[in-house]
């Protein structure tokens, strides 16, 4: 509650002196545990801000809403550490200018919410470096462990079964801060690169193309996984890609706004083991 009050006060301060035109945060949702995105433009809206351990969605994707930042005014946003990494990637990919973003960083350990020190993306580099030092724990999840133990055929069968529920609603894409393309490859229909049908081929085409596009860019915020209405465990695909990229290229997505995208840069010392 202390962090929430502190941040509400700070949001009002920034609105009062016109330092930000809007702050993107959370408010109470339709049930006790649900929080929904809130766009704060007034003191009344600032009083609706909620910050607690139920604030789990990564809000970074709203920053690339068409036209939001084009007036060069500043926007505030509530972000967990992975959300701050998303901001760095968006900046590295020239999607936004971090000087326009005021960050209300927070993290939850247990039920308590703690504020992160800093307001500009660069202020959190120490924190993100420390996260890189302890890379994603391998197989911390029982299902991920089970997938890791599978052979290729078993793993293919596992994902074929999981993807069979896909209905092509593209909630994973829409919820993902990294899926900012104005026209996604599935929306290209001359030619239709990706089948819109949710048969086996169409489901593999979509989910694998998305996984490749997120390699070295996914920060593991879990938005896709939570958004999926048919409960496909999408986080495992992206977590695995992140692990591969980390081990092969020492690349931890979103450490800074000048970090080169791993699939758009090369180094003469890069591993070539995959070249036959």
């Amino acid at each position: 509650m202390i962090t929430q009050e502190k941040y509400r006060t700070r949001v009002k301060e920034l609105l009062a002196n016109n330092s930000v035109k809007m702050v993107i945060g959370y408010k109470q949702g339709s049930t006790a545990d649900r929080r929904r995105p809130l766009f704060v433009r007034s003191f009344e809206e600032a009083d609706e801000l909620v910050l607690d351990s139920n604030c789990i969605g990564n809000l970074a994707g709203y920053l690339v809403t068409e036209g939001l930042l084009s007036d060069e005014k500043r926007v505030g946003i509530f972000l967990r550490p992975e959300g701050i990494r998303s901001i760095n990637i968006l900046a590295a990919e020239s999607q936004l200018n971090t000087e326009q973003i005021i960050i209300f960083g927070f993290d939850t350990s247990g039920r308590e919410v703690k504020a992160l020190q800093g307001e500009q993306a660069g202020d959190f580099s120490g924190l993100i470096d420390s996260l890189k030092e302890k890379p994603p724990e391998k197989s911390s999840d029982a299902l991920l462990y089970r997938i890791d133990q599978m052979n290729t055929e078993e793993r293919f069968a596992f994902w074929k079964d999981e993807f069979s529920r896909c209905i092509k609603c593209y909630a994973c894409r829409q919820a993902c801060p990294m899926c900012y393309c104005r026209r996604c490859i599935v929306d290209s229909n001359q030619p239709q690169w990706i089948n819109t049908s949710s048969h086996t081929l169409g489901n593999f085409e979509w989910n694998i193309v998305r996984a490749f596009h997120l390699a070295g860019r996914c920060v593991g915020c879990g938005n896709c996984d939570r958004a999926c209405p048919v409960n496909i465990p999408l986080r495992f695909i992206n977590a695995r890609m992140a692990q591969e990229v980390f081990e092969s290229f020492d690349h931890y997505a979103g450490t800074s706004q000048t970090q080169e995208p791993v699939l758009a840069s090369f180094n003469k010392d890069d591993s070539e083991t995959f070249i036959l």
């Binding site: 929904r36 609603c169 089948n195 049908s197 209405p229």
Partner: peptide, 25 residues
Amino acid sequence: SMRCIGCGSCTYLCPTCHCFDIQDE
């Protein structure tokens, strides 16, 4: 609708939403 992310899950889980597209594969 400011927070709407534009996915189709509401329409696809809806028992009455009936829009479709014809595609040649």
